[in-house]
Design a protein around this nucleic acid. Structure first.
Lengths: 201, 201, 201, 201
DNA sequence: TATGAATGAGTTTTCATTCAT
DNA sequence: AATGAATGAAAACTCATTCAT
């Protein structure tokens, strides 16, 4: 058989990545075997190792692809000339929509990386932290401009904001919160309403 | 007396549990070996299996011991006749103090159970949820009494509140947030300030 | 508590042996644990080791007790002045009655010792062989006296005779043959009828 | 070609099975380790698990391969238009020749499966029983035709016949009976002579 | 005699990774 | 690029036996 062209090769790589998302979401990273990924992708066992150095690298790739998109989104939001509350809404919106659009992928990223700081997330801590820092910077500027009170540190506020969102996604993932389509948009508003507006009457 | 007294036996069991906390915190549950626990406790390998059916059961025990204390604390707080904001402060306070008092134990519970819903936490989801539900009930009553706005659902507010705290602890655990002694008390106030008071000026 | 008298001590030992029979019959020698025996006997774990050097010795004891009785029975039968056919009937009868009287014990002896020549029976091969030899001697004398044909060697005839009986017991044990009370006496006659009379019309 | 050819793969599998026979015969199934099989076969540890799900499955495979051949042989014998006595001779002959041809394999099958009804044979009881039933059917037809007396039930006669043969093989295996080459053919005749002709003069 | 806690050696199985084709 | 056979390290768990009381 003639050598496939680069385009086709890239497609196989993608095929494996997409299969990995489904398998990781279904079985968990540690519970699945490399052969499960190959089977799901419909390719030979060894091909996974042709495109990736290790099982870890598959997850690394998935995480980095997505997280860089998130970081870009946050940076873009930050660059806009809108209120901080708007910015936080846009970020929450982006994350929630990411989940709505590809639940498996976000489940994998949150469950296997972001909330697995002791195992997998460890090596991505710096990358994950970038998101927190970007959010903190938004808060900091809002405090400087007087839009936000300065009763809490920006770093703390960023953690509270991100923690709230991630907890909500986790709630959906493990069916602790109702996750019907309409709940997604509601959640965006709720997060901002809670963090910015507060619960107090 | 025909046998070692129960007191001594219980002490060995405790010895193993305490050693496990240190080992799990240091190496992670999945990365450590049962022999690491035995070595840390200074007992023979087999004794771990004399007191616990499996490595899992050791972690189960640690989690349940602590989580039941947390649930009791929340229930007690809820029973008091104080403002909801006070209650949330008391809960945040309890959790933060738990961390201050035994960082290893809380690290293990959060990293290996609470945030590992896909592996270990799966079997404890119902138990974990109890905490969310208790907090939600506090919010619900506060909304009914007019102390809290009813712009968000109680379940959502509970997740945001708990998610914010856990994220802060995670920040301390992985050194993403300053965790000096004075930061602990500050954090208690910050959480409530953020969730109840909101960031808006 | 005052020291038990020898009588009582012997009783405890018996208690353990009898419990072991039930446990070995139910779970098999290799599958059961020493603690199962102790539990079944209602004594402490360590007491088994007070009376027996090892788990093996418990089975050894059970086997030797019974097998010596069998050897004595065969010798006694052989000593009587009756036809060889009568002798073989008496031996078959003794073995079948042993099974009828204590199915668990005979199951253990056959399944765990006699038919486990590769593991446990290995060390008792000489003892087991004594039975074959005694039977062979009976056959040999019968051939010499003209009661039996000398078309087969005595050793062979003994193996065929014993093998037939043991196979029948095995059939009962594993429910491959009907084992109702009336089948026991029938079997005694069948064995002799087959081995001595032959199947040919 | 993209992969080792199937022929080679099958050969490795066979290599492992043949090595297992030698190891099981020499050390016994329970006493040997999987690594012993791999070493004997000259392959890597893991390859055993590439071809077989477990150590048990290796023995399962050996047993079923051989036992199905035995069942086929019995069925073929039964299909021939010869006297029942001839049929029983042919069966005894087949079993004895099986032993002569591959002593290790037959030792393993008898010692580890057929006579280990409490452990391994348990799961093969139905399969083992098929042999008894086929033999019983032969006896039954012979009784119907008048070739055999009907003094014993066919099921019983089958057990006596098979038990006698197996006991003889066991005698060879454990050197309780002389197992010189000439003894093999003699044994075939002896079994039939004993079971069909009887010992009585 | 009696108890049961304490010991630790031993083995199956899993599965990521490598490699010959 | 593609295949899947081959490799072997790693660890949980079991349980017979010992021993302090």
């Amino acid at each position: 058989m003639a050598t496939r062209n680069p385009q086709q090769a890239a497609e196989k790589r993608r095929l494996i990545l997409d299969a990995a998302v489904r398998v990781f979401a279904r079985q968990g990273f540690h519970t699945c075997r490399v052969s499960d990924i190959a089977d799901e992708a419909g390719v030979a066992y060894g091909l996974v190792y042709h495109y990736f150095r290790s099982k870890d690298e598959v997850l690394d790739t998935l995480f980095l692809e997505r997280w860089d998109i998130l970081l870009d989104a946050i940076r873009e939001v930050d660059g806009q000339d809108v209120a901080a509350r708007e910015k936080l809404y846009a970020i929450a919106s982006f994350i929630v929509d990411s989940y709505r659009h590809d639940q498996d992928l976000m489940k994998v990223i949150i469950v296997e990386v972001t909330r697995a700081a002791n195992s997998f997330g460890r090596s991505h801590l710096a990358k994950i932290r970038e998101a927190y820092d970007l959010i903190a910077a938004i808060v900091e500027k809002a405090q400087a401009s007087g839009e936000f009170k300065d009763t809490v540190t920006p770093a703390f506020a960023a953690m509270a904001f991100y923690g709230a969102i991630e907890q909500v996604l986790t709630g959906w993932i493990f069916e602790l919160l109702p996750g019907a389509p309409e709940d997604f948009d509601q959640a965006k508003a709720f997060v901002v309403e809670t963090i910015c507006g507060g619960l107090d009457a």
